[in-house]
Design a protein around this nucleic acid. Structure first.
Lengths: 105, 105
DNA sequence: CCGGATCCGGCTCGATACTG
DNA sequence: CAGTATCGAGCCGGATCCGG
């Protein structure tokens, strides 16, 4: 994603690409949810209240960006678990700081 | 802005609104520029390479959000200087941290 | 010099189906 | 369960022209 391609080719440097991604619908919500631990598609859907389409799009982008890994289990019914990469988890303190800023004053 | 209204009414909480704003074209660039100190419209325009329209929109949004103050001088030719509010300057460490994250690995 | 007004193409999102 | 397909609406940004 912000290694090889771009979210939508508007931004040319990494920070702008990250911000552009996080500015999209649901991106922050999904990130926050997954920071609590690995979760299934359905769990994410009901907790974020996102349409499957939107959730699917964001997850795919995050996977391409190296922020999440997707684990597919060949069961019936099928089970898919999404988990943040170590790189993505390093975002936690930054997000905490940003939230703190947003909260105060 | 993210006190009373919304950027475009898509997000309902503050952090999402901030991220939604920062994800827009030029927002981060303008913020970075103004962190260097107060600047005129024309200066911002040539340094960010944004269309006047886009720059004007972002600045207005930032003003409404309490991130910048606008100083108008009744001269000929007119001079307008934009300056970050203390609240906006508190974003610097957060942005630094985010940039650092984006830079590494 | 500092923008505002307008027009318009494209992308994003929402809603509603529909499958492996 | 975990998505994809399709359609349509609406906003965003680019370009150009105009005004105080």
């Amino acid at each position: 994603m912000w290694y090889n391609g771009a979210v939508n080719a508007r931004s040319e440097n990494r920070i702008e690409m990250v911000l552009e991604f996080l500015g999209q619908k649901g991106a922050y919500l999904i990130l926050r949810q997954l920071l609590e631990g690995p979760q299934r598609f359905g769990e994410l859907q009901e907790r974020t209240q996102l349409l499957p389409r939107t959730l699917s799009l964001r997850l795919k982008e995050m996977e391409a960006a190296g922020l999440v890994t997707r684990h597919r289990f060949a069961e019936v019914p099928p089970r898919v678990v999404y988990e943040l990469t170590p790189r993505a988890e390093k975002l936690k303190p930054v997000m905490d700081a940003l939230e703190e800023w947003a909260r105060e004053a």
